[in-house]
Computed example of a mutant assay.
Amino acid sequence: MALETTVKLTVNVVLSALAVSNLMHLLPYSWSQQEKWQEISTEVKHSQGRVNNLRTVFSRYFDPQQAETIMKEQSSRLEPGQRQIFWQDKPAKDAKKVINGE
């Protein structure tokens, strides 16, 4: 009976040692997988922000209510009742005359 108990105890100790050894080999792999998962989740968050921005732009461009506004922004055409204003820089001496009321 003592021999049987010793053999069982020895087998259990060897199995426990093998289990601990395998766990020690798997821990670095698990840590590297967790680091990769963190990197991927960070990239997903950044990509999600870009996707949200692109969805907003997409929905704006394909919104029928905003089509006229977008066409005005992207073209140089004016409505019939509008006039285009051209800003010009005045020379320095003319600017003094305007300020002084001359």
Rank of each mutant, 00 (worst) to 15 (best):
E68N: 09
V57L: 03
H46K: 13
H46Q: 13
H46T: 14
R77D: 07
L18Q: 10
Q34C: 06
V51G: 03
R83F: 00
I40Y: 00
P64C: 11
L54K: 14
F62Q: 07
E4L: 10
N53F: 03
R55V: 06
A67V: 01
L26V: 04
A92F: 11
H25E: 14
V13I: 14
Q66N: 10
V51E: 03
E43Q: 11
Y29N: 15
A17L: 02
A67W: 01
N52E: 12
E35Y: 02
V98K: 05
K97W: 02
V98N: 06
Q34S: 09
N52T: 09
Q65N: 05
V57M: 05
Q88F: 04
K45Q: 02
M24K: 14
V7I: 06
W31R: 13
F62W: 05
Q88C: 08
P64K: 13
W87K: 14
V44N: 08
G101Y: 00
Q33Y: 08
S47I: 11
E43I: 11
V51T: 10
I85Q: 15
W37T: 15
S32F: 02
V57C: 05
K72M: 09
L18D: 12
Q66A: 08
E35V: 12
P64W: 01
A67M: 00
P91L: 04
P64V: 08
E68K: 15
V44E: 06
L23V: 12
M24F: 13
Q33F: 04
F86W: 03
E73M: 14
L18E: 10
V14E: 04
S76M: 12
R55W: 04
L18H: 08
L54M: 11
T56V: 11
V20D: 07
M71V: 12
I70V: 15
E43C: 09
V98R: 05
A67K: 02
L15K: 02
L78A: 13
Q38P: 01
L78C: 10
T5H: 15
S16E: 01
K97V: 14
N100R: 06
E68I: 06
F86Y: 04
I40P: 00
N53R: 09
M71E: 13
S30M: 10
R50Y: 02
I99G: 09
T5E: 13
N100Q: 11
W31M: 10
T5V: 15
H25C: 06
K97F: 03
N100A: 09
L3G: 08
V14R: 00
R50F: 02
A67G: 01
S30E: 07
R83A: 04
I99M: 10
T10V: 13
H46L: 07
R60D: 10
W31P: 03
K97E: 14
G101T: 08
D94C: 09
I99D: 11
L3W: 01
E102K: 14
L18T: 06
V14A: 03
M71F: 02
P80W: 01
R55S: 08
A2H: 09
